[in-house]
Design a binder for these strands. Sequence first.
DNA 1: CTGAAAGCGCTTACAG
DNA 2: CTGAAAGCGCTTACAG
Lengths: 338, 338
Amino acid sequence: MAQKIKLSTIAESLGLSTATISLALRDSPLVAVDTRERIKEQARTLGYIYNRRAASLRTSRSGIIGVVVHDIMNPFYGEILKAIESELDRSRHTFILSNHYDSVEKQRNFIETLLQLGGDGVIMSPAIGTPDEDVMLAEQNGMPAILVARSMEGLDLPTYRGDDAYGISLATNHLIGLGHRAIAFIGGTDQTSTGRDRYQGYVNALRKAGIEVDPDLRIQGPRTKQGGFEAAVNFLSLAQKPTAAVCWNDLVAIGLMNGIARAGLVPGHDISVTGYDDLEEASIATPSLTTVANGQTEVGRLAARALLDKLAGNHDPDGIHLIKPEMRIRQSTEPLNR
Amino acid sequence: MAQKIKLSTIAESLGLSTATISLALRDSPLVAVDTRERIKEQARTLGYIYNRRAASLRTSRSGIIGVVVHDIMNPFYGEILKAIESELDRSRHTFILSNHYDSVEKQRNFIETLLQLGGDGVIMSPAIGTPDEDVMLAEQNGMPAILVARSMEGLDLPTYRGDDAYGISLATNHLIGLGHRAIAFIGGTDQTSTGRDRYQGYVNALRKAGIEVDPDLRIQGPRTKQGGFEAAVNFLSLAQKPTAAVCWNDLVAIGLMNGIARAGLVPGHDISVTGYDDLEEASIATPSLTTVANGQTEVGRLAARALLDKLAGNHDPDGIHLIKPEMRIRQSTEPLNR
DNA sequence: CTGAAAGCGCTTACAG
DNA sequence: CTGAAAGCGCTTACAG
């Protein structure tokens, strides 16, 4: 490995000062066009690598944006991340990703690391139980935070997420419209804003239709395919014999349908199932899944844009921005025929 | 936001020098134990944030490790990443993740950014068509590279991946053992080492069993669930009426099974299907998927360990390390009954 | 056991 | 249009 090429190496080789080299490489109009070209050419020949740490130490801008969510392997977050990535790519920002797996400690470590690296901002879907201080730590050290998918009650931070209560009411109403009355609610937890909102949306829709809400028809917990699959056993042995299930998300719904099929019933036909999120996978499941499009691409795009705007010094309104969900009717729901 | 706390702030407040503070915070035995404690306590009270950029500018070690793969939303890579993450977490390294989507340019941008940030090393699953120079760029600038899942012919880099030819032969032999003769091969591409090896493993197994290899039974391309789903149409209209399919990976297999089911046939019973990778999802698919465990957790763990060892100055052997795959027999394959 | 001083590689007023 | 010099916040020999 040849010795390190730095600004001064280029400067000396060209008989110029480092100031001029620095300006030229960043395309400053302060340097004459042909000098600029000559410098860039030389930088290329020498294999110069820009040292961002040095630059950022001086400017206190790093070009790094942190993103931390529950689990990047969950396609719901995956789709949000993809949208963030493509938005950030465009503005030449580097993004650092992490899972917190709902561990407050892991999340705090991430925020601290990000601060140490001089991160410009952070987009996060806060872990269950995140104390306000952990987010304020970022803000107080000049690293603005944007929330996605989950809100935090106390703080007035820019937040982008779907309108969960409304979305779930769409799915529930769809089933009621098909004649179902015994409708279970499978998955999720009361520990997140999302969880509370979705269950509430289901409860409201039932009430509005004059259907009594039976707490035993709620199976809390499942949030993954595996979870939905395992919940099928409990679901099928419920005394109330529900004819339909509103699921926490597409993963739970697909898992549940697999579990129902394993038990010898035909999901969609024997039991109507709705999902939530409209993942890519929903349309190719068997049967294809009736679900609610949750706008994760929109969420990611808007959150990234909001952060970039804030960093650029443009003012953006704080508070919660709700994305309107939309119903996607497919084969996993059928009219009740009894 | 209060003014920035730095080493010198702590030093002044305590009447000590920055050198002592620096050493104390890194637990150096050069500083007396109670001085050390006093300093740490003060750092905590003041809300000191360690500036890694400054430190790394001085030490030329950043604690950053880059990881770039085809697509983190693909659970195959997801499982590798998870293993890398847990290994890196333990040693307090930060990892920066990126997809290259098989774009050589995106991959090169990533490597350059990583160099600019002073990355200590990079773990990569090289994009199709990666030129040697792009990887050498990293190596020559003191940033060692480790390959996962895919190899590169010309370079003698440490590489961790499954033994693809052997693994696919296990799946093919399993089907042959069940009496199948007309066995299709669905998905993948000849443009990656993995693709060539897997197809070759299939060809070898057929030949060894005295079965003629029919190139028309190969459907190239699909690598995702969506791809497998769409391939079902072509698969079912093949003139040779195959009774079984060896799929490129679990995603293609699951997609294909969904497509087969959509066409009114029963996957597993009417058509035997094997996957590859043994994703978490394989065991809960309907029918549960017969597949080959590809050791992605092992791959990620070993690759991370190898890099950390190298960074610690321990010598590690270059060259390709093949992880032995294992057969997982489930419900998606049945004896031929005609 | 602690301190003074140089230096990592940039950028930014400021001067000319 | 270009250059000299200070400084970002650390760490590391070196000296005492």
